[in-house]
Design a protein around this nucleic acid. Structure first.
Length: 104
DNA sequence: GCAATGACTGGTA
DNA sequence: TTACCAGCCATTG
């Protein structure tokens, strides 16, 4: 049995809660989990989505500056346009000021 | 059991 | 705006 790591499982729960058209950066997810008493960091979140992000809206978790996940920029941008996620004028990054979701 | 890894972050230049 | 750097910490080999 391939036991999915504990942190990855918590990350999956949080990402599944993010509404369409909104996003949470890797650091935001890590901080949200920290508030639940789950230790970890942005890199653990990225690593978890990379390995166990199947079936999840992983594109709703960009970097803190609004850029999509490294190596998946084009794919993520396609989803942003479909969901109506606020993008910067240049159209190459998420407008974190408008799209950021705090978990409420 | 220990060293390397990585879908990151915030600061500085 | 981009580029580089030290710190970060669960997971991996």
């Amino acid at each position: 049995m391939p036991g999915i790591p504990p942190y990855a499982e918590r990350v999956r729960e949080v990402v599944a809660l993010i509404p369409a058209g909104r996003v949470m950066s890797y650091g935001d997810v890590a901080e949200y989990l920290a508030g639940l008493g789950v230790t970890g960091g942005p890199r653990q979140v990225g690593s978890a989505l990379s390995r166990y992000g199947g079936g999840l809206p992983w594109w709703r978790v960009p970097r803190a500056d609004g850029r999509p996940p490294q190596g998946h920029e084009a794919e993520a941008l396609g989803h942003y346009r479909t969901e109506g996620t606020p993008l910067r004028p240049a159209g190459d990054r998420v407008d974190m000021r408008l799209a950021r979701w705090d978990g409420r």
